[in-house]
């Protein structure tokens, strides 16, 4: 069962702000999802290979060719902040 502390931790990892007014409701929803997952774990899957994708197909591959050319001007036109051809974000300290 997820509690308030765990909710905060998940929100932090997902970079989401959870409104304090909807906190309890979110906890309820997440727990309902976990309950469903728990219900699924009751099925014996020992002999079943885990599925990586719902489609029973394999990946198509692309030849190693460069055919995407510089469109940085268009991309940077919609960026919140740019400078010296870089995308700018608030200072990140490691």
């Amino acid at each position: 069962m997820i509690d308030n502390t765990e909710l905060k931790q998940i929100a932090n990892l997902a970079k989401l702000t959870i409104d304090t007014n909807t906190q309890n409701e979110t906890i309820k929803d997440l727990n309902a999802i976990l309950d469903l997952a728990k219900q699924l774990t009751e099925i014996n899957t020992d002999a079943i290979t885990p599925m990586a994708h719902p489609l029973h197909m394999t990946q198509r591959l692309r030849t190693d060719e460069v055919n995407e050319y510089d469109q940085s001007a268009s991309f940077q036109a919609i960026a919140p902040k740019i400078g010296k051809q870089h995308y700018l974000v608030p200072t990140v300290i490691e």
Partner: peptide
């Protein structure tokens, strides 16, 4: 790039 701008980090 952390040292290109004073208050921003530049991303390439």
């Amino acid at each position: 790039v952390h040292d290109m701008f004073d208050n921003d980090t530049a991303i390439d």
